[in-house]
Design a protein around this nucleic acid. Structure first.
Lengths: 340, 340
DNA sequence: ACTGGCACTCGTTACAGTCGAGTGCCAGTA
DNA sequence: TACTGGCACTCGACTGTAACGAGTGCCAGT
């Protein structure tokens, strides 16, 4: 069964009205608010077909129609054009991001901005180490057997880790270690780290081998461990806006999911170049988020991608607007990163 | 009017029952569940007095009584003894905190642990820079005019900041700057930073003055700016537990407050030595939190205090248990910090 | 292929009545 | 004087009934 143009138009009208009013929309109201050129009865017939095909449904027999996840999907794929941002919004984005002083600040500001513009929960991933390279490594002696490793990535991200040495390490040796790791790793992408670190251990004199191999294992942990992905979150208060009508009652499962970094990473971290991903309701792999939608995209300097960002909201969200905002913010952040 | 012992006992019974059942408690149920040795009628008279004094109230006529903020206050101050933790809880705390690899990890684990044990929202402040001293300063050249400043505090906290130089700075000069700032600041408490930094600028050769003074201003920003306090948060999902009965309906104001770092700092950051602070309902200065209670305390190695931690929950919370848990966690974290 | 009309469904609202937990008060008792 | 048993009263929660109306499906007519 293929839907003719008018039926699609009816679906669009239903989605738009429902998103705007949050109430099931009936045939009469629909013809009043949109220029469909036909009578309510005709619209009802179209609705019956749309319902049969699973694009809309009735909460109960004598109520209007509400889009299903499938209906939103069709809407997003074929019926909506991306709204251009208003000049005011563009200005807001620029103003907000200009004042950032370092990477933490950029991420922090971005996530708050995104939450504010979309009025939903925003998530921003810190530039992934997997996709960046080493700018500098620093070793700071804390005690005779403890050294703090500080790693600075080219994206501006900084990670630190305490290294517990098997035996006391004199300052000279620390300097030597520092020189060696920097010579070997600076400028290299993190993905190459395992091989390079391995080489480091092999090249070093047998006497210093133990120290270097401990350092090496911490280095690997810092540079390539998957759990080193980090995210920032903002706008959870927006969840409590829609009078608890969204999200089928309880916010609990949603809040629980948002507390798990792993889940957040999964949500916005899997990004392909220049693609905006929209996951609607049941399309979400995470059970707790089956009543929510996620719009996510990648960002990075130029056309490369170093991380993901996105928002989470009720399935009944303004998809065109949200998609536009998410994309725009991602683009601005990319530009900002390119400047550094 | 002074309350005799039995009236206090009645109040305690009301608080305990209400906290346990979440339902207004009546005179009959009270004499059944507690050994008060008197009849319901007598209890009713006592209740009338307690109500007159503002310790309890009726949600509506012909319902049981519910403690007021004032009632909880009296309960906390005079009627409750701190519950000792169960061995299982102690073990949980130790196990949870033992695996921590660095400060971030400690804070992260602590906040999650607290949230889990108390089943409420937990907040942990990172060790305050105001109360710690400088362990090491590192300057990493990013480009000819950009230097990244990395500061390591003795608590293990690491802060980084980008320094934008007015003119290109050769590597030798960077090394010189590095040596100078370290010589001057390492081992010194942050509070002394302003004077020391001032001296640094004055001591340097006029030629290098501009570079040093830019660096100095960023240093000050990093070391003493009040907004450099940081916090970690966990357990927001617990807010949505009590079927929305707690918190007078909407979670929105609470979630909003929790998004503001400044508010969180205010909540748990103002701590005096070895004092556990309990703020109940209206006692909170922040309007959005008038329907919540906050239990907070300070922590730090030995008997010093480097930061605060605490939990936030409904006014109807298990105060003795919560206070005990908060204190215990604070003590363990202190010990952990002392070891490093 | 569309439309107007009509019977039907069913959630919502309003109202009345009953039930019962809980209260306040009072007279009676140790 | 302090407590108790008894009793009338209050008022929210629940139940049942009725009216309402938004919205539908269907069908005959254009």
């Amino acid at each position: 069964m293929t839907l003719d143009d008018r039926k699609l138009e009816v679906l669009r009208a239903i989605v738009e009205d429902y998103v705007a009013t949050q109430e099931p929309v009936g045939s009469k109201a629909l013809v009043e608010r949109h220029q469909l050129g036909v009578s309510p009865a005709t619209v009802r017939n179209d609705m019956a077909v749309l319902e049969e095909e699973g694009y809309i449904k009735q909460p109960h027999t004598s109520a209007g129609r509400v889009p299903t996840d499938r209906g939103y999907r069709l809407f997003v794929d074929r019926l909506s054009r991306v709204k251009p941002l208003s000049p005011a919004e563009r200005r807001a984005i620029e103003r907000f991001l200009l004042g950032a002083v370092d990477l933490n600040d950029v991420v922090h500001r971005t996530v708050r901005l995104l939450a504010q513009l979309t009025r939903q929960v925003a998530v921003v991933q810190y530039p992934s180490l997997n996709r960046s390279s080493v700018r500098h490594l620093e070793l700071v002696p804390i005690s005779t057997t403890r050294i703090m490793l500080v790693m600075i990535a080219d994206t501006g991200r900084v990670e630190q880790r305490l290294v517990e040495m098997p035996a006391p390490v004199p300052d000279d040796d620390v300097a030597d270690l520092r020189r060696r790791v920097n010579d070997k790793l600076v400028g290299k992408p993190m993905i190459e780290a395992p091989a390079l670190v391995q080489a480091l251990v092999e090249e070093v004199a047998p006497l210093r081998r133990p120290a270097m191999s401990v350092l090496a294992s911490v280095l690997l942990e810092t540079l390539v461990e998957p759990h080193e992905e980090r995210v920032a979150l903002a706008g959870t208060a927006n969840l409590a806006r829609g009078g608890l009508l969204d999200f089928k009652g309880s916010l609990r499962p949603i809040l629980e999911a948002l507390e798990e970094e792993v889940i957040l990473i999964k949500l916005i971290g899997e990004v392909e170049p220049s693609m905006t991903r929209v996951r609607i309701g049941d399309e979400n792999e995470i059970d707790n988020l089956r009543s929510a939608s996620v719009v996510s995209t990648g960002y990075g300097p130029g056309s490369t991608i170093v991380g993901g960002l996105g928002v989470l909201g009720p399935t009944r969200m303004d998809y065109p607007g949200t998609i536009a905002t998410v994309r725009a913010v991602a683009r601005y952040v990319g530009e900002l990163l390119a400047q550094n």
